[in-house]
Design a protein around this nucleic acid. Sequence first.
DNA 1: GCTTCGTTGACTAATCCTGATCTATTGTAT
DNA 2: ATACAATAGATCAGGATTAGTCAACGAAGC
Lengths: 155, 155
Amino acid sequence: MTLSDAIETHLRDLLAYQGEVELKRSDLSDYFACAPSQINYVLTTRFSVERGYQVESRRGEGGYIRLRRLNCPDLPELLESLVRFEGQLGQAEAEALIGRLEEGGLLAGRVARMLRRAVDRRVLAVPLPERDLLRYRLLTEMLAAYLATVGGERR
Amino acid sequence: MTLSDAIETHLRDLLAYQGEVELKRSDLSDYFACAPSQINYVLTTRFSVERGYQVESRRGEGGYIRLRRLNCPDLPELLESLVRFEGQLGQAEAEALIGRLEEGGLLAGRVARMLRRAVDRRVLAVPLPERDLLRYRLLTEMLAAYLATVGGERR
DNA sequence: GCTTCGTTGACTAATCCTGATCTATTGTAT
DNA sequence: ATACAATAGATCAGGATTAGTCAACGAAGC
């Protein structure tokens, strides 16, 4: 049981009650008597979209970290299938994925159209291999945000 | 809840009653027991044009600050107004725009949430200044794709 | 041993808030 | 009409307060 595991467990416990939790990074690092950056490590390794979580944050006075548990029947398989892309996604693969979701009725036509624009290499316009990494992050985060529900309620 | 948030809330409440509010900066800063310049900070960060507000003011004897809500832009106006960003867009500005379009009923809640993820600096995760350029391209392209009407019909 | 995972600390970045100083507008005395 | 004083908002640099990034090093598991 590492420190990271302990922090993960703690956060999961909090999330079990509410689908969303807000906290201060410094409070958490004080509580676990660790470096503040340790919190970031846990967040990126254990609370990623692939695992069904989303993280928001703000710096400065009144800063916070907000954790959300994603809730969507179709999301797990979807993200599971993304894992094999290993964090990278080519344009063709992205378009194929969007097409399948649209046919499956999970994406409205306008939304699908918008997503296709977003994964276009001319719109992203950053050199490879960063482009495929960016496309992966973008699409997974956007799909999660669009498809997920929180607390069993459609947002 | 920071001081800025409190001031923002207060002003929003006032605006909810009347579409236009006139007040003295010094009164407000007295009321919140803060520096007068704090009011300016709130005005520029929370009541910007991107967020759909217009601010007028006069100095000297009889000076005042007048706050007004603007109507939600349609796609042509929107694209026109984006020009002034010169191909770059910060996260705060992007979020302001998305919020305004959402309030105006042009973006559904889920779509707005999705777009907010897309403009998040942690999702884009490319170094500045490329990040602001990328954000601009992404948002304009996606909004155009989503809001566009073809043959008078929403696609 | 080598590779992966966990942990830390030094540096970076965003956000809020204030105070000193500047500018615009009006009032008043000559 | 002009000059000066008084009033009130604007601007800007910088300090304070958070959170993020990254490289390095150590620990744990093959």
